[in-house]
Amino acid sequence: MNKKRFFLLLGFLVLMVTSAFLIIQKTDIWNKERVAKSELIERDLDIVYGSDSANLTIFLFSSYNCSFCRKFYKSVLPELEEEYIKTGKVKLIIKHVALTNNESVINSLQLAACLNKYGNFEKLNELLLLEPKVVYSNEFEEVINDLIDKDEFVAECMYGGESEWYIAQNLGDFKKMKCTGTPTFVINNRSYKGFLDYPKFKQLVEKELAYTLQ
């Protein structure tokens, strides 16, 4: 084989292998699971279910505007809570991300974080899961103002920079982890994008639990 043919063949082979790699990467199989390049940490304003002594920690990047995140909270979280969180096996850390600059959306996430730390977050969570567009209404803005007037800690959290910084940090973490959409779960430093129904999510949890307990 002469030199010219060798280089042409080599070039062709490299081109084919790289193209195949790119095509596979575009498919769901590889996008579902990615090894994260940096490690996530629990922050003070995170919404946490479960105990510190749990065997497995699951981070969830979530947004109320994302219908599949809401589906996760409604159809997967209750069973996950019963089977893994209440039994001390799993700790779920929710990080809300605002994938928009819309002030109403960001305010609602800041309020959720502040109420989770300084008040009662459950009713707000229920409301945002039921009707996320509520955040654009005048009534919602009035409620934020009422809560701020009633509680100085919530007021300080909302406007003293704590929650603003927190939401910005979440978006920073989201990007640092190379996440491209919500919901994204990060477990054992591997990220899984997209909604999974409970049987599939359970399989994932079992796989990661087995990995942790190795």
């Binding site: 009662n120 009713k123 409301l127 009534e139 009633k150």
Partner: peptide
């Protein structure tokens, strides 16, 4: 729910 958020989310 919005009313409940107003009434029950923080201490008065």
């Amino acid at each position: 729910l919005l009313e409940e958020v107003r009434m029950n989310s923080v201490c008065n």
